[in-house]
Structures are given as C-alpha cells and as structure tokens.
Design a protein around this nucleic acid. Structure first.
Lengths: 411, 411
DNA sequence: ATTGTTTGTCAAGTCTTCTAACAATGTATC
DNA sequence: GATACATTGTTAGAAGACTTGACAAACAAT
C-alpha cells in the first residue's frame, strides 16, 4: 500500500501513479527496477515502462548500471537524478537554527548551525534564517533560483493552509504571523512550513531509525518537548495542528510552574530547560557534584549535565534518570493511546543516550498494556540532531520532485 | 476528499470511483443527486451518469422523487435501495449482548439485548450470540442466507487479518481464538470483526454526534473503559490493534489494583465496576445515602448510582463526579496528544449525562493546551447504548453494499 | 550452442473519464 | 400562457491509462 506523499497538492491527481512511482523510487535505498516497481505497485510491466519513460524524459529519474541478479536479464536500476536540482531544509529550534543544503537525492551537501533565540519574534528570526540561507548558497557557488523548494520547521503548532503558527507556547510574538506567505514573497520559492517534531518523525522515517514503519512516534526532547506522529503511514497533526503536544501533559499537579501557565507539565519536569534548572539548584544547594566546576552557575546547560553524567557524576545521573522517568510516564500513556510500532527519542537532550532511555523503557514496561509494550521498540534517533532538518529536506523534495515531474515537455 | 471505506478489500481497485460514489450516497443523509455527486467528487456529470447507471443496474441504489430546488431542472435524488438486502450488527460487551437487524439503508428493523458474561469464554458466548441471531432472524420472517454480512464488536484489541483478539484484559480465554474464522465457517456469511470502541466511533461518525468530523475520539465508559479513534477520516487501531486502550492509563500510582495487574488504572477508578464498588463501600461504611434502599448491597450497579444521583443523592453524585474527574484527566491527555475536533463520551455509564460530563469539561479546560481545548467539543453519544451496534451495522454494510456493487450482470 | 529465466518493450483492445453539445424539466418574467 | 433562464441529466466522440499477450534483450546454467 503506497500512500506516500503525493497528496500535498492534490489537485491534478490525474497521473496519480506517476507520483506514487516517483515516491517509491525516492524512498527505496539503492534504487529499484521497473519490474520490481510494477510488482510493488501491482501494475503491469508495460504500464511501468510508460510511467518511467515519462519520468526519464523529465530528467527527475535516471538509470544506473544494471545489477547482476541470480539469473535472467539483469534489471536496470532507477534512482532519483541527484543533479537535477537542489533544496534547502531549515530547522528553527528554540535555541538553535540549522540550515541544510541537499541535492535531489537528499544528500546533504553542506550545513550551517548557529545558536539562536526564537523569542526574538518573527522578523529578526526570519532575517537570521535568510542570512544563513544566503551564506550557505554562496559558499556552494549556487544562487537562490537553483533552489527548487525550501522546507521550514518551527517549534509550534502549524495551521498549514494559511501557513501560520497558532498560539505557540514557546514562540511569543509569532502567533498568526504569516510565515509562509512572507517567505514565499521574499524568496520567490515554494515553502513547506511544518512543526519541528513532525519533521523529526518524517526524517527518521525516511532516512533514520523508523525506515518503512507505518506507525511511529518521534519524541523531540530539546529545550521543550514535543512529539511527531506518523499514523497509517501519514503524518497526523490533528484538527488544529497541535497533535503531539505532549510537553504540556500534566504529570504532577504539584510540580513546578510551566511557561504555559499550568503546573507540573512534562516540559517543566524533563525538558532541557528543566534539566538545566535542576543542575543550577543542585550547585546552589552546595551538593557535591562536577557541575560546580563547569563554569558560571547561571550558564549551566542540559549539555553540561549530560557531560558530567557521562563522567560518572551521581547528581547529574540522578537528574537525568528523573527526567527519563517523567518522560517514561508520558510515553507510556502515548503508547497506550496510539500503540505505535516504534518510539524514537530525538532532540538535543536525547543524545545523552541509554542513561535517559533506560528509565523510559522501565516505566513503559511497567505501565503500558503488555500487548502494546511488548511490540514497541524504543530507540534513539539515528539522525541525531539532524532529524528535523532532514525532515525539512524531505518536505522540500516532496514539492520539488513532484513539481518537476509534472512539467510537460520539459526538455 | 473522499477517503471513505472502500479499501476494505483493496484488491480490484479498478472502479475505485464507483465505490467512492456508493459511500458518498450512503453517508449523505436525505440522498444526493448525480450533479452534486459530480461536484463533490470532482468528476464530470457525464462520468457520474455512467457510474450511477452501473449502481442502478445492480439495484444497490434507487432513484426517489425529484426535489424542487430553486430554479432549473430539479435533481433526481439517489439513495441506497434499502430493500435490496439485510445485515446484522452484534455488540458484545462485558456484561451485555446486543444483536441488531438492519436493512441496506442502515435502518434498524429489530433489536434484541440480553445480559451477558464475556468471561465465560468464546464457545458459550458465541453460542449465545448465535441463538440470539437466529431468534431475531426468525422473528422477522427471514433466513440466514438473506443476511448479506455480519458485523461483530468485542471489547478487546483485534488483529484484523487473522480475525482474533490479542491478550484482551477483560476477555479471559479468548486470546488467539479464531473468532472470525469460526463464525464464517458456521454461518457461511462474511464477518467483520472489530473492537467495540472502534465501532462506537464509527457509529457516531456515521449516524450520531460526530457526523462528518474527520478527527474524532469516542470514549466508551462501560464496565471497562476504551477509546475508539477516527483520525484523518480513518479508523486508527495502531500497530497491533490496541490503540485507544485508555482504560489502562495509570492515573494514580497508589490507586486500587486493576484486573490488568497494574495499580491505579483509569478503569479501576472510573469504570462501571469501580463505580459499583464505591457504591457498595459507601453503603457498608454506613454513609447516609439512597443507595442503602436499592436492594441487596452486593448487587448495586453503576446504573443504581446514576439513578440515585439523579434523585439528588449526594454520595452518588460525589462518586460520579470523582469518576468524571479521573476520566477528565485521561481525556485531557488524549486531547493534548491527539487534538481531535470532538470527543464523544458513550457507553452505559455515559448516560448519566451532565453530572459526568461537567467535571470532564472542567478538567480538560484546566489541563489541556488552550489551542486544543478551545476547539474541542465534548458531548454525549447521540446513539446512546447503540453506538457500537450501529458501528457493527456500518461495517457489515461496508462489506455487503460493495460486494453487491461489484457483481457483474447482476440482473 | 542451447535452454531457461527474467527484464523491458510493442501493439491492440478495454475501460474510464473528459469535452461539448443537446435534451429534459423546472422557475421567473412579461 | 408564452418565453427566457437555469440546472440536471444524457449522448457521442476522443483522449489517456492500463491490461493482455507476444516478443526481443540480456544474462546464467547446462
């Protein structure tokens, strides 16, 4: 069942199969032959010849060497023509900004990342993104018109049709700002605007830990906490775009206050900010910990806690284990509700590794229904900090490839 | 976007549009004309004429009187030919068994319900269902071969392909029993086996409170508690069929033991059994309550508590309010994760009404993200205790109608 | 060299849908 | 009541996508 990505612009659904074939080619690692395409799509080889010729004419797809199989005529392997064009994926986090340049086969050619503050509001933030984008383009001897499409991820709930964020808890000043419209007007390129956690699940599904899974949750643990959901092979983002906002699940009604106004939200207990806060508190309380020797107390970050924990610091390990426990409670609930086949923990904090993952696994096995808990795999993101930016690249390519494939008489 | 029900048997997806049209007709109340069908499906009127003629030849669809519109030729309204055949929907609860007979337009012609105990295991339970089925058929001067398909709902996670339940918490003895195979062999009719909460959301979506919504949660509060999820217009049941099992979310780690082995599950705090238990405890503790006068203490049920609460009994009202609060906690989490447009509370206990609904609404508005909480509507099931059996009828019709529509040269 | 196997292509026919014109059947207007 | 107008439904011809069945191409095994 190939319900990939084409229904992005669902008008002109005439040659549906052409686009399904295109998606099957792009998401099959190592390429695929006409015969196998025909098999997988349940079409005749003759029909596949016609469809593939169409794609070859448009130069989106190219033939590579034949691969020697077991016996019989060796198949001609098809793959995306990587040189046909370029796309850019932008990942705006709360505290970092990443811009990645990729070719049509999703190979990242270059990448820039800078520290960042999303609370500055839309105009300065988008200006920074623009600066970084142009820097990247020029460094690689390209120009904006060679970029076929751009994917942008932001940490808030998206209303996709108008291209805005709606009441984002950690993006003050952005509510209702016409992000997509502004960028399309400025840059003159098609933009795909998405939630960063959604992009994370997309990236990991396409090129990471969740390859080929159709029911997948991606937990992004950074400064804040959010989840991206892939259900039935489709990204799910709910009625108003705020599905997966697990950061504001109430875990402990008597817990610390959260930025969203409620008390005891997961984010306030286990997010990067919360971890940093606990580290500062530990130092100020005078506990014996390596954290005391890691620079000024006010600048202690989750990254420092991770480093100290890895070096055997008990206090840091406790902080992380506690965060893992709270995460586990939320993930156990998510598993009971959604029953995914895999949960991928990503985002900056996740790079701590097993120290964070183990308490999650423990709690999940203790709290979730056996039927669901036994089948679910809980892993760290393979793409590490790149999950979301790769997801942005995937979205950009979804636009670029299908747009190019639509062109009539391209040559 | 019409992603209705056809991909049930997805082979032979040649005349996809025919089946999409059929579904559009069956789920449009009051019927629909060729012209509007063409509009909604983005097909030409000419194509629609051909498709509809096909359906008319097979006698699945019939023309009714023309409806006088504003001006121009009045449209000919099409509707499902209700007399073309019959289906049966069976709803097996933990403590009740309902069998409903419906015609092709989903009108329920007759219905039988008996008290029931699902813990008896598959053979006796299915025998009871069979007895009730035959009783219903004979009472209505029909025979089994006039029934085109049968939908069956059970309160456990379904693996649909082999037609079994997997490790169901409240169905001891049923694990792995080949339910669908056994019934298809016995009755010789196609069977659709589904989870009861899934059927609930289906029923309410088709003919109840959630008509036309594409993101919908149905919370079934009976002896146990489960949720059915409709996401992106499709039923979602997860990797292993146990999506929506919110009954075993841990709400209070120090709470009472649950049948599933864990402590403080929602079901053990707010399910029908839990409500009955709290009623018994109140009476035994000697509290002043109407519950003392409602028969033997051991037989007090959730229904009695509801009745007493409605008559102003404070103790009963407190029990119900507390159950509503626990439910609200779970539903608030579900709303944060899944951001539906509507949550429908159904099942036996839900008929208590606002006494239960109000605490749910309060907690949700307190705990959920404002963006999600403001858009979500929380209502009681319109079909009352019939949500699931109507869902079973819908499934049966999905098989029956499309099967009949496939027949070539039916006349 | 021959046989067998699998891939890719070609030609003819089928099926679905579209366009464009037209017939049918009502309301609104004079 | 006759006429104009609007909307629905049908018909005919053409375009496009896919299928079947035959066949050529390119390799491995014998």
């Amino acid at each position: 069942m190939s319900q990939f990505f084409w229904p992005l612009f669902s008008q002109n659904v005439k040659n549906l199969n052409k686009h399904a074939v295109l998606d099957l080619i792009r998401f099959t690692p190592g390429g695929i032959s006409r015969a196998e395409l025909a098999l997988r799509m349940e079409l005749s080889r003759a029909a596949m010849t016609a469809i593939v010729n169409d794609l070859l004419e448009n130069d989106v797809v190219r033939e590579t060497e034949s691969r020697n199989g077991q016996s019989g005529r060796p198949p001609i392997i098809l793959e995306i023509n990587s040189k046909r064009g370029y796309v850019v994926g932008i990942d705006m986090g709360a505290s970092h900004l990443t811009v990645a340049l990729a070719d049509f086969s999703a190979q990242v050619l270059d990448e820039v990342e800078i520290p960042f503050d999303i609370t500055q509001g839309p105009e300065p933030c988008l200006a920074q993104a623009e600066a970084l984008l142009f820097e990247l383009i020029e460094k690689n001897d390209l120009s904006l018109d060679r970029i076929q499409a751009i994917g942008l991820g932001v940490p808030g709930p998206i209303v996709s049709e108008p291209g805005i964020v709606l009441a984002p808890p950690i993006m003050p000043g952005w509510d209702g700002y016409p992000i997509r419209q502004a960028l399309e007007r400025k840059w003159g390129r098609p933009i795909s605007l998405n939630n960063d956690a959604e992009l994370g699940v997309l990236g990991e599904w396409a090129y990471g830990a969740g390859r080929g899974e159709s029911d997948l949750a991606f937990i992004k643990v950074g400064s804040g906490i959010g989840a991206g959901l892939l259900l039935n092979g489709q990204i799910y983002h709910g009625a108003t775009g705020s599905a997966g906002e697990i950061g504001h699940l109430t875990i402990d009604e008597n817990g610390p206050l959260c930025d969203c106004g409620n008390a005891g939200c997961l984010e306030a207990l286990a997010g990067g900010k919360a971890i940093a806060r606990q580290a500062r508190e530990a130092v100020m309380k005078g506990q014996r910990t390596l954290l005391s020797n890691m620079g000024p107390v006010e600048e202690l970050s989750a990254r420092d806690v991770a480093a100290a924990a890895r070096r055997g610091d008990l206090v840091s390990q406790q902080i992380i284990a506690r965060a893992g426990t709270y995460l586990g409670i939320a993930i156990a609930g998510l598993i009971n509700i959604f029953n995914p086949r895999m949960v991928i923990v990503g985002g900056g904090v996740s790079q701590i590794g097993d120290l964070l993952l183990q308490p999650i696994r423990d709690i999940v096995h203790r709290r979730s229904l056996p039927a669901a808990a036994q089948t679910v795999k809980i892993n760290t993101a393979v793409l590490r900090r790149r999950s979301s930016s790769m997801g942005a690249v995937v979205r950009a390519l979804s636009i670029a490839l299908h747009q190019v494939a639509e062109q009539k008489e391209a040559k």
